[in-house]
Simulated scan of single mutants.
Amino acid sequence: MAALENRPFVKMNGLGNEIVVLDLREAPLMVPPEEARALARDGVLPFDQIMALYPPQSEGTHAFVRIINADGSESGACGNGTRCIALYESGRTGADHLVFESVAGPLACSIGPEGITVDMDVPRFGWHDIPLAGPVADTRAIELQAGPAEAPVLRAPAVVNVGNPHAIFWVDDVEAVDLARLGPELEHHPIFPERANISAAQIVSPEHIILRVWERGVGLTRACGTGACAAAVCAARLGLTGRRVTVTLPGGDLVIDWRESDDHILMTGPAEIEFDGRLTAAMLGAPAGAE
């Protein structure tokens, strides 16, 4: 029998970032990587991340969340997924202020007229925090490129950790970058010992960024909340934008505010529920009724 067989799920999305919410607080089973991969298959229940909710570990929090990518690996943060679980939990409890725990730290959420806001904590810029394979002089632009050596397509990204590692490449036109081809190579580059999320970012104005993201363990996504946060703080750090920007992704817009008072990143955007159901053995890659 598959470990997750007959468990209820809710299919949600945040700007088209496909999320499956598993509320495991009453039966706190770990999500087997092979069952996550089986579930993510085309025609089954394709997702970018599973947000698995477990009993809270600290007083005053609603749940401990583990984030599982489509390839079965675990992620430290998912901004769009966090907005989804905030909407889910608000619908369940009526609360409009929620706090979740994660391996990356606490995630405070609030639901208001402009959308769902998540406090993504402070960005980390130290090479060892990202992490990189070794010291670099300046994480605002590291020595890394993709494409022909004589004419690289992408070069000198800014790097940051916003709960997971990100590399942001600045480009004139995000549509001209074949991120589906270059993303896998860069995600697995030896400079990133824990792999990295790879973004192409186009600065439209001091208040607007266009972004495309190759997400670690997932691939191209319609939206990546941590990617939007990473691009916003790296752009502001370089003086390319102010500290409050709109980030446009294929799925829509996120508003990112890198709060000056304490350097916390506030991400605001939508989330929606699509449908719910129960997981079956066939969905999880096991024969029905198998023991």
Rank of each mutant, 00 (worst) to 15 (best):
C229V: 10
L87F: 05
Y54L: 15
M1A: 14
I116M: 06
E260T: 13
N161L: 00
E272Q: 15
G112N: 09
R140K: 12
D129H: 13
G242S: 09
R140Q: 13
L182F: 12
N69F: 03
V153H: 02
A288T: 14
M1G: 10
L238V: 05
P206R: 10
S110R: 15
A201T: 14
E187S: 05
A158R: 03
D23A: 02
P113G: 15
D172A: 14
D42N: 14
M51I: 09
G94A: 02
A86P: 02
S199M: 14
I111N: 08
M267T: 07
G91T: 01
H208E: 14
G60K: 03
C234Y: 00
I210G: 05
I85F: 02
A235N: 02
F275Q: 06
Q49T: 04
G16I: 12
L144C: 05
V20P: 02
V31I: 13
P106A: 09
E143C: 12
T248F: 04
A281Q: 12
L132N: 11
R212L: 11
A158V: 06
P8Q: 04
N197E: 09
V204M: 13
G269M: 09
A95F: 09
A52H: 11
A95Y: 04
A231R: 11
V162N: 12
R259C: 09
E187Y: 07
F100E: 06
D129P: 00
E35G: 05
A286K: 14
I68M: 03
D48Q: 10
E89S: 12
G277M: 11
A63C: 05
A36T: 00
